[in-house]
Amino acid sequence: MFNFSIQPTFTERESVDGSKLYEILIVGGGPSGLNAALYASRKGREVAILAKRVGGQLLNTSSVENYLGKDGSSGEELTESFRSHVESLKVPILEDAEIRKLEKNEGIFHVTLADGRIFRGKTVILNLGTTNRKLNIPGEDTFASNGIAYCAICDAPLYKGKDVLLAGGGNSAVEAAIDVAKVAKTVTVIHRSEFRADKILVDKLYEMQNITVHLQTQILEAVGDTRLTGVKVLDKKTKEERIIHGDGLFIEIGNDPNTSLVKDLVELNASGEVIVDDKARTSLEGLYAAGDMANTPYKQIIIAAASGAIAALAANEYLNTI
């Protein structure tokens, strides 16, 4: 409570210019977008970032333990070090900018924001990341604001001393379980198959006294009256259904790519990710996609950052040819 996480957004900043035709317009400000900006700017390109929130999913991460050289940084610290590196090159960043539309007219990309403003680029690099996947079970929408949560670091304090259920078995689920268990009375992890998380994390999870784990258990329904009181599950081994009680349900079952905006513009794969080639090129000339929204394997910070670099270098190469 007595720490102050001041964001350096209050200092003087370069601003994104609506009248300018940027050479590389970067949409999305997570690890991928920020690194793309760094590379594009170092190539001397006129570049700007438009993003809802600089940091992206990094901001929901309490502790990052697998980014080379930055062991144990909080997601926020990492975000600020990325941001200040990019800003040291005077790259303008527009935050709170929600993109609603992307079009290519006569060789120029037009990006329209929710508030109607339009920005233009000769090339665009999309780095929109992903959003939490829903369970898509009955009751999920009913209790969306009455017991279901999707952001462990945000919402854990609301469950102090309570019994919490947590769906998922990947790295973010296991990390979230460990974080929530520090404040909640108990955490019950429910996952439909086996853990996919790193062994080092799973070991840590099993060390926590107040965490119980149910693997091979599928959540069928969120149950409750005015608030969520538990979930109905199917034990896949015994084929029996039962109710597991809890005051809240955290859903950490993975993510869906934020690609609805471009689904009619570029080719997507069956998982909804933008299909890119080895130079981050989409099916539309001049449009690049990188990070978690693209069909690159393994969704990790270092991989997203690296793919942003590839996209920027490829866009730079392309600009030399037009």
Partner: peptide, 10 residues
Amino acid sequence: VTLSCPHCPG
């Protein structure tokens, strides 16, 4: 809000 929520100040 909670004080540990990065999306809340916005």
